[in-house]
Structure formats: C-alpha cells, structure tokens
C-alpha cells in the first residue's frame, strides 16, 4: 500500500486516496474543432509508462484536493507530489528501470 504525500495533509495511506490516471492531459479548449481521431486520442489514449510517471490523485477521504504525483511504476518509488498547476519536481537521472 503506497504512502502518498498529499501537498496539503502530508503522508497518508493509499486507502485515503482515489487514483485519477495520467496527469497533464488538458481537456481540449475547443473540442468541436477536433477531428474524430484527435478527440479519440484525448478520450481513450494514455501512455503506459514503465518508470517515472506523472499521475493524478484525489485525497478523497481527506482534504478532497486533487494533486499530481511522480511515481515509478516499476518500483512504486514516489519522487514527489505537487499541486495542480505547479511544475513537476526534477526526476532522478535514470528515468526508467532497466529491468
């Protein structure tokens, strides 16, 4: 069970949170202008990263704030968390796991 650092509350058990999928996928400004394939890209396509991954979490059983986390999907190491709109923290040098 992950130990997730909420930017407002500090470290809490994963069971207090809801997962929100890949971060930094903005809703298109004007969906009507998009081709079907572009809209489908936004709707359905996500990266399946092996290594450090920016993802959204909601502290649903706490402060109810959304925020972002950089987590290594192989080791589950969390590099850091940051508020919506903030810049992500620097990634460690090795951005994936060799294994």
């Amino acid at each position: 069970m992950l130990n997730i650092d909420c930017p407002w509350c500090g470290k809490r058990h994963e069971t207090e949170f809801h997962y929100g999928g890949e971060a930094h996928i903005a809703r298109p400004e004007d969906p009507a202008k998009l081709e079907d394939t572009e809209w489908a890209e936004f709707l359905f396509m996500r990266t399946n990263t092996k290594g450090y991954f920016a993802e959204r979490w909601l502290h649903s059983h706490g402060c109810r704030r959304w925020f972002n986390v950089i987590r290594n999907t192989v080791t589950h190491d969390i590099v850091g968390s940051y508020k919506m709109g903030e810049k992500p923290p620097k990634l460690p040098k090795r951005t994936g796991d060799a294994k």
């Binding site: 809703r27 959204r56 909601l58 649903s60 959304w66 919506m84 709109g85």
Partner: peptide, 13 residues
C-alpha cells in the same frame, strides 16, 4: 460531487 469537484479543481480552476 467528485465529478463536479474534479472539473473545478483540474480543468476550470
């Protein structure tokens, strides 16, 4: 409620 808050916090702050 989750849905409303998600959009307010993440898409339309």
């Amino acid at each position: 409620l989750d849905w409303l808050e998600e959009y307010l916090q993440t898409e339309w702050p």
